[in-house]
Design a protein around this nucleic acid. Sequence first.
DNA 1: CCAATTCATAACCGTACGGTTATTGATCGT
DNA 2: ACGATCAATAACCGTACGGTTATGAATTGG
Lengths: 107, 107
Amino acid sequence: MPAAANKVFTALADPTRRAIFERLARNGELTVRALTDKAGVSQPAVSKHLGVLKLAGLVHDRHQGRQTHYRVRPKGLAPLIDWMGFYAAFWEDRLDRLEDLLKRMEQ
Amino acid sequence: MPAAANKVFTALADPTRRAIFERLARNGELTVRALTDKAGVSQPAVSKHLGVLKLAGLVHDRHQGRQTHYRVRPKGLAPLIDWMGFYAAFWEDRLDRLEDLLKRMEQ
DNA sequence: CCAATTCATAACCGTACGGTTATTGATCGT
DNA sequence: ACGATCAATAACCGTACGGTTATGAATTGG
């Protein structure tokens, strides 16, 4: 289950890649060309980053003629949420136990 | 704000490091020795990983004699939650619950 | 006191990664 | 038909990173 989280964390660890993802999240759908223009790196670099994001399930691509449109895949962040949710549940347990303890001490 | 997210993502991207973090989350507080015994890597490697986690604000350390106890710093995941803010539309309830929980954990 | 334990640091090593330029395959515009 | 544009791939390069062993500083126990 956390195998997917691995790729997601790795994909989002790089600032350039995360910036690309954020632009896609804001603008909905962009071509490689459009992304390259404001990425600060070369077109091949952008293509590689998009490949990593795609492999991590964070983006989806659509080919139209000679250009490729990329957009965010909504479910892509799910592994991340799930991973954090797991610990949230754990923390809640600890909080619950703490609350129980405090209640018992009140007597 | 995204500078913190950067370190957090990077810190959690490595499987060994994330495993250490998970063990700390489950067990509450552990010494470097205890962590090393089941980490699958050498003690210096564990120490370095803990250094990265600490620098990312994900763990906190407490020195007692010759041993150092590490524990999870609950607020450490906050930058992650913040970063996902622009995704709120998709995650609404789940994100809200996480944010509530983190607020309750604030010291 | 001396030996052992604990942890951090230093020095080093191989590899993976992010970047580049060059190239190729498609596809569009004229 | 042809030149230009777009995107992916290949080949290469420097560096950062995760791992190791070796060493040192501090603390503990017998």
